[in-house]
Simulated scan of single mutants.
Amino acid sequence: MRRIVLWTAGAAAFAAAALSAVIAWPVGSAPGPIGLQGNAQRGAYLARASGCIVCHSNFDEGGAPLAGGAPLQTDFGTFYPPNLTTEPDHGIGDWTAESFAKAVRQGVAPDGDPYYPSFPYPFYAEFSDQQMADLWAAFQTVAPVAESAPDHDVGFPFDQRWGLKLWRAAFFYDPKTDPVPGRSEAWNRGRELVRGAAHCGACHTPRNLAGGRDLGAVFAGNPALPGEGKAPSIRPGALAEGGWTVSSLSYALKSGLTPSGDAFGGSMAEVVREGTRFLSDADRDAMATYLLEGEDGGRERLAQRGPVAASATGQPE
Rank of each mutant, 00 (worst) to 15 (best):
M1H: 13
W7R: 10
T8A: 10
A9N: 00
A12N: 08
F14Y: 00
W25T: 02
V27G: 11
G32W: 07
G35E: 14
G35V: 03
L36Q: 09
S50L: 01
F59P: 08
F59Y: 14
A64R: 04
G68M: 07
P71W: 14
T74E: 02
T85A: 04
G93Q: 13
S99N: 08
A101Q: 06
A103T: 13
P110Y: 05
D111H: 01
D113C: 10
P120V: 10
P122N: 00
Q131F: 06
A133W: 02
D134P: 06
W136P: 06
Q140V: 03
A149C: 13
H152Q: 00
D153P: 05
F158G: 03
Q160A: 02
A169Y: 04
A170E: 08
D174M: 01
P175H: 01
P175S: 10
K176Q: 14
P179T: 09
S184R: 01
E185W: 11
A186W: 05
W187V: 04
W187D: 02
R191D: 02
A202K: 11
L209A: 15
G211Y: 12
A217G: 06
V218H: 01
F219K: 02
P223K: 03
L225Y: 08
P226N: 00
R235W: 06
E241T: 15
E241R: 14
T245A: 04
T245W: 11
V246G: 15
A252D: 07
G256H: 11
S260G: 12
S260H: 13
V271H: 14
V271L: 12
V272C: 12
R273E: 15
T276K: 06
D281K: 13
A282R: 08
D283Q: 05
M287C: 01
M287S: 01
L291G: 01
E300Q: 15
A303M: 14
R305W: 12
P307E: 07
